[in-house]
Design a protein around this nucleic acid. Structure first.
Lengths: 225, 225
DNA sequence: TGTTTTATTATCCATTTGGATAATTACAAG
DNA sequence: CTTGTAATTATCCAAATGGATAATAAAACA
């Protein structure tokens, strides 16, 4: 790091061209971890700055405010997840006009699943979503809808078409059950294997994914009384 | 209110015997609402005091700290829910040694369901739980287990006995799916009816409960591959 | 080469926050 | 009647917090 003084601190002023890392991204990464651990209000911008090893004024320079920082964090990955979801669904439909419920749910989960297992930042993003999911603040709700509603709608349509006996309203409701569940699950897997009194057989990540899919596919197909 | 001065403020000093309301409970009620809205770190003890119309020092007097206040809030209702759950399960088993999966899940949900519809404070408690469910802080996890693990274990055993083909480990996992989902659902019902492009048929609370039960009962019964 | 822009740290500031202590008043006990 | 105890408000305090401004240095541009 060419811009660093002997004690690891950067000098003020424009960094050397040789400076390789983009601090804006470093801040986003660290903010993601921090928000995931502590939620929005539990996170202090100063902590983020410290983790990212930048002056805390730099956050304001790049993002303007703590609120804006959070949005940036959320949109960055949310956008990726949402568009990958759509892509997977389209390619599924290209192969087969009536895919199975299992395939559809699997496609929905896969992007976040992969992200979760792609490293600490990806895993953090899921925890972050669980937090935002528990929030009632208008800001949070708008953000969620904005990022996810489009792909969710598409999934509901598709499911509805392969489950003609189930009213679309009910499919939508069940999809909401599904989402609530997978967010919380991905969030605290492992911390709840020990409720059976038996030996804690460790579940492979992939096995878990299939458990989820099988369980919710059965629920989706349940006759509506 | 005999202890109040003309502007509605109480005097310092021990209140009149005639003072009817127990301020400790008023604080708990208001804290519950505040924590539900804003989560733990988003809530300021001063806000709680203001809502309860007491001096904010009184919170410390009764509870000692913000942490302790939160625990008190959680235990108060958590204890009720947990024990009502156990009671319902026992009476179910008294009637019939092999109740249906639907009955078991219904019994699990009923206490919180009733609480939710018992007034704003009850509804707040569910939101509060959704928050705590999203937290990873050791404190929160311990509290959750402490209050809920006993009844949860009992439900898992019972379900396992009426679903002999499903390994207990899997029942436990599915129960976790179920819990994640219902917390979230109860939390923001109504804010997600509008994803179907159709007219927003409003769901009766009871209809919702049955949707949940039917859906998850089907999931519980899904063959394990 | 000189000047403007850009990215970065340094410093400062007002407000909020949780908590501590002191003052006050009603009731209880002797 | 006096002394103590319990419940309540008033005030105070230090630390944390988000944000604003100033200083600085490299790069880009003229």
């Amino acid at each position: 790091m060419s811009g660093a003084t002997q004690d690891g601190r950067r000098k003020p002023g424009r960094p050397n061209v040789a400076e390789e890392t983009d601090l804006r991204d470093v801040i986003l990464d660290q903010a993601e971890l921090a928000f995931a651990e502590s939620g929005f209000s539990g996170t202090r911008t100063r902590d983020v700055a410290e983790r990212a090893k930048v002056n805390h004024g730099l956050i304001r320079y790049y993002f303007g405010s703590k609120d804006a920082l959070f949005e940036a964090v959320f949109r960055r990955r949310g956008g990726v997840v949402s568009s990958r979801r759509l892509t997977l669904l389209e390619s599924l439909l290209a192969e087969n006009t009536a895919p199975s419920v299992e395939d559809i749910l699997h496609a929905y989960l896969k992007p976040q699943w992969d992200m979760k297992h792609s490293g600490p930042a990806g895993a953090a993003f899921i925890r972050l979503q669980a937090h935002i999911h528990a929030e009632t603040a208008e800001r949070a709700l708008k953000l969620r809808s904005e990022v996810y509603d489009a792909s969710l709608k598409r999934y509901i349509q598709t499911l509805s078409s392969v489950l003609p006996e189930i009213p679309t309203q009910v499919v939508a409701l069940r999809m909401a059950f599904f989402i609530g569940s997978y967010l919380f699950m991905l969030n605290d897997l492992g911390r709840l294997g020990d409720l059976t009194d038996g030996e804690t057989t460790h579940l492979e990540p992939d096995a878990m994914l299939h458990h989820l899919v099988r369980f919710f596919a059965a629920g989706m197909r349940a006759p509506v009384a």
